[in-house]
Amino acid sequence: MNKISIKTLPEDEYFLGHKGCGGCGGTLVLRWALKVLGVRCFVVVPAGCMSAIGFIYPQMAFGVNAMIAPFAATGAMLSGIAAVVRARGLENVHVVGFAGDGGTADIGLQSLSGALDRREKIIYICYDNEAYMNTGVQRSAATPVGARTTTSPSGQVTFPAVKKDLLRIAAAHGIPYAATASVGHPADFLRKVERAGQIDGPSFLHVFAPCPTGWGCPADRTIALGKSVVETGLWPLVEWDHGRVTINRQPRSFAPLSSYLDEQTRFRGLKPKDIESLMKERDSKWAALHAWVRESTSSAEV
């Protein structure tokens, strides 16, 4: 199979003419992933932004087979399609889900877990814009500490919130392939989608996807934020492939958090001590990540 790259990315469009906001990171995730996977896809998106902007009868934005799932049921609906693919011995097809962070980390987690547990041959892609955006920016379990939402107006919550680590939750199911990615690093993302498409079993991608509307940043800063979040160390690019963990991008030193935070009104409420604790949290996350890499290297079958 030819290695996919930005240069060889097909011109075919499979998600076009939708009503997404300017600068939407989530729509980029769908558009790019489908270019990699091609027309023989069965796509499931749950209730949320992508279904609200892509399926408005009679104007359909998908150029592949696609359906909307009940909010909680992306994993289940993918499984139902995968079961028939299995029954009929269909080849060279992909069963792909695109769900937001609320549809994945909150309401859809049970259904995702079931699909991963059963080793369904599916690709599940979570585009993470760190809140419920379709309903107007409410806090999800993937909202970072300190971010203002319409249900956490000060940016503070009354419990020690830690953004759910979806990569490790997925990997803990013992699935073959899971990775994080960012729309700010398209080459890395495309490669991971291609890899996911080669996996015989479930694969899970957790993709950082800025939402200018919800984050309070200019619409042309989506890609820049997708890069700076990686440089600050707040969003590590990591890959779990058959038990082996690889850090795909290791910044030599972390860029100051302000290079990422200051561009977004949602972080306006952060005080210096909050930023201090965000740095501490980032550092402990990286320490845990390095430990995970060491552990996987010593235990993985090579």
């Binding site: 993918l78 139902g80 399609i81 079961a83 259904s111």
Partner: peptide, 27 residues
């Protein structure tokens, strides 16, 4: 000769079968 799927909830059972039915399969 059927795919017997152990689902994680009744909600998933019916959602799963909608996926299968969209593939044109009897469920």
């Amino acid at each position: 000769d059927a795919q017997f799927v152990h689902v994680e909830s009744e909600h998933s059972a019916l959602a799963l079968l909608m996926g299968s039915a969209a593939m044109g399969a009897r469920t």
